[in-house]
Amino acid sequence: MSIQHFRVALIPFFAAFCLPVFAHPETLVKVKDAEDQLGARVGYIELDLNSGKILESFRPEERFPMMSTFKVLLCGAVLSRVDAGQEQLGRRIHYSQNDLVKYSPVTEKHLTDGMTVRELCSAAITMSDNTAANLLLTTIGGPKELTAFLHNMGDHVTRLDRWEPELNEAIPNDERDTTMPAAMATTLRKLLTGELLTLASRQQLIDWMEADKVAGPLLRSALPAGWFIADKSGASERGSRGIIAALGPDGKPSRIVVIYTTGSQATMDERNRQIAEIGASLIKHW
């Protein structure tokens, strides 16, 4: 058993032996400061991975655009179909130039040979490839079927209504393609630790998130040596930015963190910096 498999397999085991986890309101002070700095709403939640207890939250039940963070949920739905014998990670999917949409750094290189379902999930999560996400959405029946999958998990909040890139429109008060921090954190925890997916599929999902290559300026920039993080970021119109993550010290995840912001006029660099500073406060007061 690899170190990674050891880590995921023991998450339920550690729940019975973990020390009490204490919240630190200092992080919420930073979240509120980020709102002031960005001139935008910020949603935040910090969840204990083992118990599911909410440690801190700010606007946990307000809607925010999901942006590309939905791609983790999408690959969770794909893995659920794999577990049920309805899909194979090794199945190759062929597509054409007409299928390519904006920001497809991986799929645009494989027009001649296509990509496997496994490769598409990797591209969608680690590189946020939009065509990969659309191709995967097609395999499960489209955005409405992803919403149905989430409903069956008990998440009646999170919804996907459109495809890439239209889902990134982020119109104020538009509930399409949105979630709430509390709903996203709970759903992510179920995917990573619950019985919905097999152990192998849970491991695969967290491996893809751990290999994320496009979230460096966010929480990863504040991470001390030896800490673990598996994450997925997102960005969209109207100053929207977000990240969902499982992270913790000693090389294993122990908390879920979800951060969303929307409605800012700030630059992408400034949005990144504010999220990184929230992460730094979280780690300092861990």
Rank of each mutant, 00 (worst) to 15 (best):
M115P: 02
E87N: 02
R162C: 04
C18I: 11
D212V: 04
V82L: 04
T262E: 10
E195D: 14
Y44P: 01
E87C: 05
L135Q: 07
I206S: 15
K144F: 08
G43N: 00
T198I: 05
T187Q: 02
M115V: 05
A170E: 12
L49F: 11
A182K: 14
P172Q: 11
T198H: 10
A15V: 15
S2I: 15
A23G: 14
S201D: 00
A84H: 12
V101I: 14
L223K: 05
P181C: 05
T262M: 10
I278A: 00
H151C: 11
T158S: 10
Y44Q: 01
I93T: 03
N168M: 03
E169A: 10
F14T: 15
V31A: 06
A15S: 15
F149S: 05
I171L: 13
A15E: 06
A245V: 03
L188C: 06
T193I: 13
E195R: 13
E35D: 04
G154E: 06
F6D: 08
G226V: 03
T147H: 05
L247R: 00
G90K: 10
E175A: 11
L10I: 15
S57A: 12
E237A: 06
E166M: 10
E237K: 06
G194S: 13
A9L: 10
S281G: 05
G141R: 04
G234E: 02
M153I: 14
Y95A: 01
K109I: 11
Q265H: 14
V214Y: 06
W163H: 07
I244T: 04
E277S: 08
T147D: 04
R238C: 13
L10Q: 07
P60L: 07
I229F: 03
R7I: 11
G43R: 01
T186A: 15
R91L: 03
K252M: 11
S57E: 10
T178I: 01
R162L: 02
G52L: 03
K32Q: 15
A40C: 10
L19R: 09
A15C: 14
R220V: 02
L167P: 01
Q204P: 13
R91Q: 05
T158A: 02
P249H: 05
R176K: 09
G43S: 03
V257D: 03
R41Y: 06
N50A: 15
E277I: 11
A77T: 08
L73R: 02
K109L: 13
A133E: 00
L146V: 08
L282Q: 03
H94P: 08
S201Y: 05
A40V: 07
D174F: 03
T267E: 10
D269M: 10
A225D: 14
M180L: 07
F13S: 12
T187S: 12
C18F: 06
K284E: 13
K53Q: 13
A148S: 14
M153R: 06
K213P: 03
V157I: 13
H5L: 15
V72F: 06
M184L: 05
L135S: 02
A133G: 08
T69N: 00
R59P: 10
E175T: 12
G43K: 00
K53V: 14
R118T: 11
L218V: 03
V82G: 04
G52D: 05
N134E: 02
T187D: 12
V78A: 03
A246G: 04
E166F: 12
T178Y: 02
I3F: 14
E26K: 09
V82Q: 04
V78L: 05
R59G: 01
P217G: 10
Y103S: 06
L136T: 02
A170D: 08
A225S: 14
A215K: 05
E56T: 09
G52V: 03
A200S: 15
